[in-house]
Amino acid sequence: MTRAMFGRTAGSAAAGPSVDMSANLGSLAMPSPVLTASGCAASGRELDQFFDITKIGAIVTKSVMLRARSGRPTPRMCETPSGMLNSIGLQGPGIEHFIEEDLAWLTTRGARTVVSIAGESVEEYGKLAQKLRAVEGVDAIEVNISCPNVANRNQVFACDPELAANVILTVRRQSDSQTPIFAKLSPDVTDITEIARSVVRAGVDGLTVINTALGMVIDVETMRPALAGVTGGLSGPAIRPIALRCVWQIRQALPDIPILGVGGIRTGLDALQFILAGANAVSVGTMTFNDPSAPFRVQNELAGALADRGFESVREAISYGHRGADVFGLESEGETEPE
C-alpha cells in the first residue's frame, strides 16, 4: 500500500513540518484546497455530523434549479467496478427554498459555499444567477452545464462550445461581478480543451473538471437497463484517470485558468495527482458516500503527502507534474534523456 511506503499515516502530517494549505479558486480564497463535490454533499448539514465543514476548502452544494423538482423514479443508482452510476434527475427544493433554508444554514454555520446551479434553458441559468445576486453566503457559483437544453432537442450544454458559452455569458451578465463563476465540464466530448477555451472566452473565472461520464448497466436477471433512467452518470475511482487526463490537457491548453479537479478522489495521494496535473483545488465526490469523513481525511492525507515530498505549500505543487515538458508546447532546452 502506497501510504505505508512513506512510513507514515494520515494523521502524522500534523506532527511534521506544516504545509501551507491555503488555496485560491479565482478570487475565492480558502484555507484548504479540498472541497466537496456537487451532488455528493447535499448542502453540508449531513456531513457536518462527521467533520467540521468549516475546516475544509468549501462546500459545493447540490445543483439547484429554479423550481422544486421530484427527480427520476428509482432505481436511481447502480454499483459498478470501483464506481457507481446515478440517475437522480436533479431532485431538489428549488432556488428560493435553497436560499432561505440551505444557504442560510451554511452562512450561519460559517462554511464557505460554492453554489451549483442547473437549468433547462439559457434563460433559466440567467434567472438562477439573478436570484443569487446580492445574496449573503454565495462565495462562488458553479454552473452545471451537463444538462439537456429543452429548447433544442435536449442537446447537452456542456457538449457544444457555443451553447456552453451562451450559458456562461448569461450567468456572467446576471451575476454579481465580484462572484467567481466556474463552469463544470463534461468528459463526454471529443476535445475538452475546445469547450474549456470557449467558456473561458465567455468570461468564466475557472473550470470544474470533470462531471460524471455517461454510462449504463443492464441487469441480467430482468434483462433490462438497471437504472429507471436507462443511462446514468459514472463516478468514483473508475473515472479518476479520465478526470486526471482532462485536468492535464486543460492545464496544457490554458496555463492560467483556475481548475477545480474532480473525479474519483479517495486519498490524499489521489488529490496530489490532480494538483500535480494542474488543479488549483480538488473536490471529493462519490467517495464521500463510501466514507462520510473523506473530504477531511483527504485534506489531512494531502498535507502529509506534500510534506513527505518537501513541498512547503500546495501552491508549489500545482502543475509540478508538467515540469520538463514545456507547458506552452515547446520542448524545454537543456533537458537530457535519461539513460
Partner: peptide
Amino acid sequence: EEAMACGIGICMTCVL
C-alpha cells in the same frame, strides 16, 4: 428496504 448509496442523506438514491 430501498437501495441506498450513502445511508446518511446526501446521495438522493433511496427515495420513495
